[in-house]
Every structure is written in structure tokens, then in C-alpha cells.
Simulated assay, not measured.
Amino acid sequence: MPTMIPAAGRAMAVFEVFAREKRELSNSDMARLLSLPESSTSDLLHTLHALGYLVRTTRTRRFYPTGRLAEIARQIAENDPLTTLAQEAVEQVSARTNESVFFGVLDATAVKIVAVQASRLPLRYIIEVGYRAALHASALGKGLLSLLPPDEARDTLARSKLRPVTAHTVVDIDTLMAQIDQGRKRGWYEAQEEGSEGVHGLAVAGWLGGRPAGISLAGPAERMKKNHEEYLAALVEVRDALMAEG
């Protein structure tokens, strides 16, 4: 069975301390904050400094992280397999429905869109990758909230800005929780002109790599109603092939 490597844990703890303190720190500062001997902390900081992860000021001799860790994280994120899987999912659903399709993940109190495939039809709904959709006003948001324990979902809504986006937006938490529970029981979620006038959204959700994720399509209300069963079948099939059901 794999074992924890203390040195690796301490190295990561150094960056967590810097993130929390948001200031330059001396060796003694870090030793105190990590509850480690100064000699051990000195070796740890020296190693990270030598590797280019920390810089040391000339006058105060205090340490602070360089941009190297952020650059490495950026390079990792650019090749995140989630992005590839998400793009494949929206392309598959779009090929079957020719509607605009979106893949989103839970990001604090919003839905972060990580993949988009736009419809080729004249009347279509379009948002961009990186867009943050309101949890309470989107089918995706309701789907993602359904994956959380009810108390956590309610708390997340309470911390969100539940402003009315359209005349149809629901801002009452009890009503939203009832909608989420209904969607959980039937296996899909909807937003009827709640995020944009004249636009209906349909979504399914599940777990992907330990993260709440969902696939949604959206389009003009009448077209969505007419093709509801066909669109839902496409969403469910792609979701089931990609991730565990919520």
C-alpha cells in the first residue's frame, strides 16, 4: 500500500502557508507556522529556493514564491484531460441534436463552462468557454447542485447572488431546492426562460474525476419542447458513457 512521504507534504504545506499569509516570510516565521524545527525548515526552504520555486530578498532575507509554480500549474491545466473529455461530449450531443451544447463544472457558487459546441441553426443560444452561469438560473446549475448533500446545496445557494435574470428566474431557495429534488428523481433538469428570455435549457449531471459535472443543451423554447425526448436521450446516452450518474 502506498505511504505518505512527509517531505512532500511539508513542501506543499510551505505554499499553503504563503497563500494564507500573503507576505514574505523568514525561516523562523515558516518554522513557527509549520510547527517544525528551524533547522528542518531551513533545509526545506533552501531546497525550494535552489529549485527556483522561492525567491529570497537581499535585504530582509525573507522568502516568497516565484511564478514557477503558477506556470507549471498553467501548463498542466492546458492539457487537462477534462477539457478533452468535455469537448468530445458536447460534440457528440451536438451531432445528434444540432443544438448549442455546453459542458460545465461546479466552481464555488457558479457553473464554469469548460466546453461549448454551437448550433448551426439560425436561431441559437451561444455562450463562450470560461463563462460563469448562475446556479439558480440554469439547468446545468440545478443539475450540479443535485450532486451535493441537500444542506450543502442549500448553503451554496444562500451564498450565491440570487438575482432575477429574467421575469421567470426563481430566487426563492425553498422553491429551487424542490426543483432540484424533482430533477434528481427524474434524472434531468431544466430551466425555462430563467437565464435568458425565450431560451429553454435541459441538462444531466454526474461525477467526473471526483468533480460535479454536467452536460446541457439550450435553444428556442418551442424547438426545445418539440424535441424534448430526443434531446434528453442524447444527453443521457453521452453522460452515461462518460461519467457516473448523479
Rank of each mutant, 00 (worst) to 15 (best):
G214V: 00
P2E: 15
D80M: 02
L148S: 00
Y53M: 10
M30D: 02
E38V: 07
I180N: 01
D174V: 12
P37T: 05
D29A: 08
T175V: 15
S39I: 12
R186Q: 13
V14C: 01
G210R: 01
Y125G: 01
I113N: 02
D240Y: 03
A110N: 13
R132M: 12
R74A: 15
L36G: 11
F102R: 00
P81T: 05
E24T: 09
G187I: 09
G141Y: 02
E88M: 12
L162V: 07
I126N: 12
R68W: 06
K185I: 13
F63N: 01
R68S: 10
L176M: 04
R62W: 00
A241Q: 14
G141I: 06
A191V: 04
V114L: 07
R124G: 06
N79P: 10
H136V: 02
K226I: 08
K185F: 01
F15M: 01
R223S: 04
S100Q: 03
I173A: 00
P150K: 04
P212H: 06
M30P: 00
D151H: 09
Q117P: 08
D240T: 01
P220C: 13
A70I: 03
Q192H: 12
G246Y: 11
D80K: 11
A233P: 08
V170W: 03
A95T: 08
D107R: 14
K226N: 07
G9A: 14
S26A: 00
M12S: 15
S216Q: 10
M224W: 02
E222V: 08
V101Y: 00
S28T: 11
Q179L: 11
T58E: 11
A234R: 02
R184F: 01
L208E: 07
A139K: 01
Q87M: 12
A133M: 15
P65W: 12
I72G: 11
T3Y: 12
A7G: 13
A234T: 10
A205I: 02
H168S: 13
E229F: 10
H168G: 09
F15A: 08
S100E: 07
R61I: 01
D107M: 14
V129D: 03
D151W: 12
Y64Q: 13
T156R: 12
G214H: 04
L85A: 13
M243C: 12
V236R: 08
E193N: 06
L48P: 03
K226R: 11
L202Y: 00
P37V: 04
I180L: 05
V165M: 10
T166I: 06
R239A: 08
S196E: 15
Q117L: 05
V14Y: 03
K142P: 00
S119V: 06
E229K: 09
A118G: 07
A133F: 13
E128R: 10
I215A: 04
T57N: 15
L48H: 01
T58S: 13
